[in-house]
Design a protein around this nucleic acid. Structure first.
Lengths: 261, 261
DNA sequence: CGCTAATTTGATTTTCGTCAATGAACGTGG
DNA sequence: CCACGTTCATTGACGAAAATCAAATTAGCG
């Protein structure tokens, strides 16, 4: 999280191209080699670029909004508020993600989008995405496939929150975030900066900040993680993965069902 | 759930067409008037029709599966199992829904699909959907929009399970099911048959069957619902809707961002 | 009619939430 | 550069919602 996204995606088979790579392209072309025309189309989406400092609320739940956002650097989360002041963090967004879900199906935004770290976004009018769907069938199918994968990832979170105890919820969340950061920063790290408060972690896992604190301590005591301020180090990734039965849903997306031509 | 889907969808603006309506068409054309060619394409998906009695497991989590299912009648749920024997019901499926999410992005199925009532499904090979994406841009965009709405509905469930007490969780679930059944059966009913066990309700809301029983009792005591065997009657819909802050996410989906032809 | 599965009931335990106080870290402005 | 305020982490005592366990009753179905 220090030097923001300066390197080429290490897993991306299609990074040798001349012109600067688009954020979406980086992500999508990992699943399917894209044509020049398709890459152009994606780049064409990314014209209104804006940067926000950590903590900024980019759009608020209920705001009328015609825009989507493509994440160019940094990370964010989407959340909803309850009438009693509570909050649920629904998901996190990283490089190449599109915040389509929340503002596409209605005229208003169904969640609040908040910058976790400093970040740069491309603001995309909804109808621009409409043009992609009209002109680029393979991209359409790919967006749909990625959306499906994200829906399954969300289902995993529901299962975690609905049916597991605090240790598994927190452990799963750490692994999920690590997996996604890894796509950005490279496969190296079990160490990462976690600029989230206990309150944030609680709002993501359905726990109170107090109990998240206790839970992190328990994970430390068991030798699964180490902490130093906001730095988290997952000492025993395999053990933790096994302990919480973590499943990676984002690294692979099937495209073999796409029609030719 | 008695006479299965015999009537024309009362809200559907495009039901005067000659040939028998497709299940998907019924749902999609509610959001966007479809062309004849588009309707044909949807009907072309619905060729392998199969019926299953209530309780049947149609596909199991982890099964290799190249198929999706379009629901022609009845209802189902998708669920996952945990290693400790627990289960999380992720969502319910009704007339016109596609179970794309769980088997589209991987070669295997990410959830178990179980018939709640007797039901009829169309089995669709994944690559048939690929052809829709290739040839029918508007349908592609519409499928994406509907998928986004479903993702928000899933987010609502996450919020409900993560951040609200038992009464709200169960109340929300009842209203969600009612809203979806209503799309099938017409706007009439606050009475519906709920062929779910307490265990099922618990697996959907993240509670134990014991506590679901207590919670239903509490809802009865407060005069919000009545029960008679498997028949549920929501006595005070408005009061319950207000009490649990229920939001309807399925009735409307925006299509104004679609690009012109 | 009898068997199985589902619901109901009650007693008890556990996990997690609530509340409150303390302390560390950080940023700001005098 | 230090005082101050704010925010966040930590700690502990206590309470409550829901889980667990076990038994009894009921409903459903062949």
């Amino acid at each position: 999280m220090k030097g923001p996204m300066n390197t080429i995606h290490p897993l991306d088979p299609a990074t040798q191209v001349g012109s600067p790579e688009s954020a979406l392209e980086r992500k999508l072309s990992y699943h399917l080699p894209l044509t020049f025309s398709e890459k152009d189309a994606l780049r064409w989406l990314e014209r209104r670029e804006r940067s926000y400092p950590a903590g900024t609320v980019i759009v608020e739940e209920g705001d009328p909004s015609d825009n989507l956002y493509i994440i160019a650097s940094g990370w964010l989360h989407g959340s909803t508020r309850l009438e009693d002041g509570g909050r649920q963090i629904l998901r996190f967004y990283f490089l190449g993600d599109i915040t389509a879900t929340f503002s596409l199906a209605w005229g208003y935004c169904a969640a609040t989008l908040t910058a976790v770290s400093d970040c740069t976004l491309f603001e995309v009018p909804r109808h621009a995405l409409g043009r992609i769907f009209r002109d680029y069938p393979r991209l359409s199918a790919l967006l749909y496939a990625v959306g499906s994968a994200e829906q399954v990832a969300l289902s995993d979170r529901l299962t975690s929150v609905g049916r597991t105890d605090a240790i598994k919820r927190v452990g799963t969340l750490l692994l999920q975030i690590r997996t996604q950061l890894q796509v950005v920063d490279g496969p190296a790290g079990s160490v990462f900066e976690l600029p989230l408060t206990l309150q944030d972690l609680g709002d993501a896992t359905g726990l109170t900040k107090t109990h998240v604190g206790r839970t992190l301590r328990a994970l430390e005591r068991d030798g699964l993680i180490e902490r130093d301020g906001k730095i988290i180090r997952i000492v025993a990734i395999d053990a933790l993965t096994e302990r919480v039965r973590f499943k990676d849903r984002v690294t692979h997306v099937a495209t073999d069902w796409f029609a030719e031509g």
